[in-house]
């Protein structure tokens, strides 16, 4: 029975998201849009996409999500994680795992793909640093908000197609890649050490 409900629900919710997409296109508010598409034409796995909300470091970026529908859906929440790398206190900068109550114990059976994606968009606007998924990011968010803002903006432009260019940060990464460090690792290390080149180098070579 549960499998049947899951498939029926996903088909309907898929249409619901498509409909809202059309509305937002019509209103020309594409920057708020959410999208979803089926993977392998099955109702078991979907690919979601949310636009970074305006007035946040994520503005202008498009973030891809992996959505897995359990057999017991909608009695259990979908399993969602970020495929696009993102710098956010409630999202693991390494795995993309998300800490959001409605994807865990606060899930309710009447929630849908659309409400989940909108909640994630809201999470990007309003982080919860006291309930972090990534402790390093959360610490930076609380202690050095300006640094956090820069880093998140930088990650958005590199991984999510964001508009801002930050030559001074790129320069630091280049210094490390010149030493033979892989670019992603260099960025991770620098971001984690508040762009302190010396400490990042130390960590990478220890």
């Amino acid at each position: 029975m549960a499998t049947n409900i899951a498939a029926q629900r996903i088909k309907r919710e898929f249409k619901e998201v498509i409909k809202s997409e059309e509305v937002s296109l019509y209103l020309n508010v594409a920057q708020c849009s959410i999208k979803v598409e089926l993977v392998n034409d099955s109702c078991v796995e979907l690919k979601g996409e949310i636009a970074g909300p305006p007035d946040t470091p994520y503005e202008g970026g498009n973030f891809i999500l992996e959505i897995k529908i359990p057999e017991t859906y909608p009695f259990n929440p979908p399993k969602v994680r970020f495929i696009t790398k993102i710098w956010h206190p409630n999202i693991s900068s390494i795995t993309g795992a998300i800490c959001l109550d409605i994807l865990k114990d606060q899930w309710a059976a009447a929630m849908t793909l659309r409400t989940v994606l909108l909640s994630l968009q809201a999470l990007l606007s309003a982080a919860e640093p006291d309930d972090p998924q990534d402790a390093v990011v959360a610490k930076q968010y609380k202690e050095q908000p300006e640094m956090f803002h820069q880093t998140a903006k930088h990650w958005t432009s590199v991984y999510a197609g964001g508009p801002s260019k930050m030559p001074e940060l790129d320069e630091k990464i280049k210094r490390l890649t010149d030493m033979g460090i892989e670019e992603h690792n260099a960025r991770d290390a620098l971001s984690s050490y508040n762009w302190d080149l010396e400490r990042a180098t130390e960590q990478l070579f220890s």
Partner: peptide
């Protein structure tokens, strides 16, 4: 549907 849900979580799904 409601019986199935309430067995997991005793709240209104909405």
């Amino acid at each position: 549907c409601m019986n199935e849900w309430i067995n997991r979580q005793p709240t209104c799904p909405l």
